[in-house]
Write a protein that binds this DNA or RNA. Structure first.
Lengths: 327, 327
DNA sequence: CTGTTGGTTTATACCGATAATAAACAACAT
DNA sequence: ATGTTGTTTATTATCGGTATAAACCAACAG
């Protein structure tokens, strides 16, 4: 087959919504260009969508002067728009396997199997895996199969080390930002959001997703002070790991979140006062607790397969075959 | 078509060499298992190779008791073994385009075009590009085409920043290594190699490749003290950039190399004396000169296309679309 | 002359099929 | 029993082909 037509589907739905909301029956339909801009796509999917709507009798008078013939009913909408591009879907399937522990850390798995599960071809899976390997969570040997990296103490330590280094550096950079840098303004907003969420948590409302989003924004602001693409790249990995990891390490979640938020707050307030050394100290605290929660939760989980018997003594650094074509 | 058969070809050649060197005519041929181990592959390519040699009359008596019928002649060897797996070949073609400046930084390019040049299918190219994007040298927009990142002052600065951070940290780690860590032993060897190359350069012999290899080893030893997969991953990128970059920035090469080697030496000697603070100071020096040479050489080169007109205001962080399927 | 729609061309994102490899198993010889 | 080779199966690396999306150009209306 070919490309997924999720753009077409999504576009169709958006057009329908737009018509229902803004265009009375009998009025001329919006122009193709307008709809394309509105949906953020090129004209091609808009045109196929429009043709589709023509066939379903929602839009009449093909050609220059299209007319809205009737308003859409519920069954005119596509209902499976959730599924984005193939890679996104495959990622979901894959992470689902990981989180259900059907795939254990250290274990091998095959493209074919994943393809069956995801209901797509091996090519699509393969391309997803190659890209996903950036995360350091999976690796493959030159001719061999894929393997889920052991998500163990060592992995966590390496991740945390790197994180410490980057964030520490980032905070000192932050202090050096120009006085009218927009980042300073963002801090105020963050402080408010932190206080709000803390209050909500104390009151029993507010839950994981809010924390997760806020946590992410907090670290992103810090990290962006470095304005460095390599740092950001690495941070994508960090966020990813934390995101999925927390999803199944739930016990004591509320308490942990509260601690984290308070620590964030102290850092933010210090920054807000332009007190860089204090911010650095508070950050160090925060990183320490973050590290230990991560390590604790890892101790708790299943061991996985662990290291495989290293069949030839010098297993490649595993994450990455080097970029350079050597040999 | 299918997989490339470079393993088969390489294996054939290695078997021929082995026979020529170690097995007299008329003697029984080595066993399949032995040859497989010798060449570091599985039995399959060995068997196809053996069959091939049978057809060419080099090995007689098919079956259990294979006999070497005659020694190989020059034309029995495959001559295009150089070409490794597709990805390696594509990488060569691609970097060639970049270095010849047929592809300018900031410019778009298409999978199809690269496929034509490399003589392979778009799938192969696509998979190469996805993996190669880790380097941060290319990026692609969600539905759009690929683009060679501007290799400009900013790129270099970000790279150097990251490098400084990592190596500085690495050196302090190094000092904390156990007294019988093998790394200490490696230092002695490195010092010797540095002195030798310096002497050779003074005498007019010795050239780029030697320096490049030595430089790489030096930094690898430092970096490996961190024993961190993410750091190593990033370092693959650094080595890659430097490797290719130096290949076309040749003026003043000898002088630069000599300076670098001397700086390395001072660091190594300090480490050898277990004088960590001094090593750190010297490292800082070295990083500073490395940074400025890199920046200088960038000033010198063509400007490329530069930033494109940012059609929608919030062009994605460009290097990486985030790992998480969001939306 | 600006904005609209209708075609056309090129490129990407997939799929299905196939050769090359790896891995496992069976048969056999020493 | 252990090590051979022959056979089968599973999986990767690759290709060619196709539907969708983007970009371009022409025709035309206000």
């Amino acid at each position: 087959m070919s490309k997924t037509d999720h753009l077409f589907r999504r576009t169709t739905n958006e057009i329908l919504r737009y018509i229902a909301d803004h265009v009375p029956v009998g009025a001329p339909a919006p122009t193709e260009n307008f709809l394309a801009a509105h949906c953020g796509v090129s004209r091609s999917p808009v045109r196929t969508a429009l043709a589709h709507l023509g066939e379903r009798g929602i839009i009449g008078g093909g050609g220059q002067a299209r007319i809205v013939a009737r308003h859409p009913r519920a069954e005119d909408y596509f209902d499976d728009v959730a599924m984005g591009p193939r890679a996104d879907h495959i990622e979901k399937v894959f992470m689902d396997l990981v989180l259900r522990q059907e795939l254990l850390p250290g274990q091998r798995f095959s493209e074919a199997e994943l393809a069956r599960r995801a209901g797509s071809s091996t090519t699509a899976v393969r391309e997803f895996l190659i890209g996903f390997a950036r995360s350091g969570l999976i690796a493959k040997k030159p001719q061999g199969s894929w393997r889920l990296q052991a998500f163990d103490r060592r992995f966590a330590t390496e991740l945390a080390d790197m994180r410490d280094m980057l964030e520490t550096q980032a905070v000192t950079r932050f202090a050096g930002l120009g006085p009218d840098d927009p980042a300073w303004a963002a801090i105020g907003g963050l402080i408010a959001r932190h206080r709000a969420l803390l209050a909500a948590l104390a009151g029993g409302t507010g839950h994981y997703k809010d924390f997760s989003a806020l946590d992410r924004d907090f670290h992103n602001i810090i990290i962006n002070a470095m304005d460095n693409r390599f740092v950001r790249e690495f941070y994508d990995v960090v966020s990813f790991v934390f995101h999925y990891h927390y999803q199944w390490e739930r016990k004591g979640e509320r308490a942990r979140n509260i601690v984290a938020l308070e620590e964030h707050l102290r850092i933010l307030e210090a920054l807000d006062r332009r007190d860089a050394p204090e911010a650095a100290r508070r950050l160090a605290e925060h990183l320490a607790t973050a590290r230990s929660t991560l390590l604790d939760s890892i101790e708790g989980m299943g061991e996985g397969i662990g290291e495989e018997p290293e069949e030839d003594g010098h297993e490649r650094p595993v994450v990455s075959r080097p970029l350079m074509a050597s040999r």
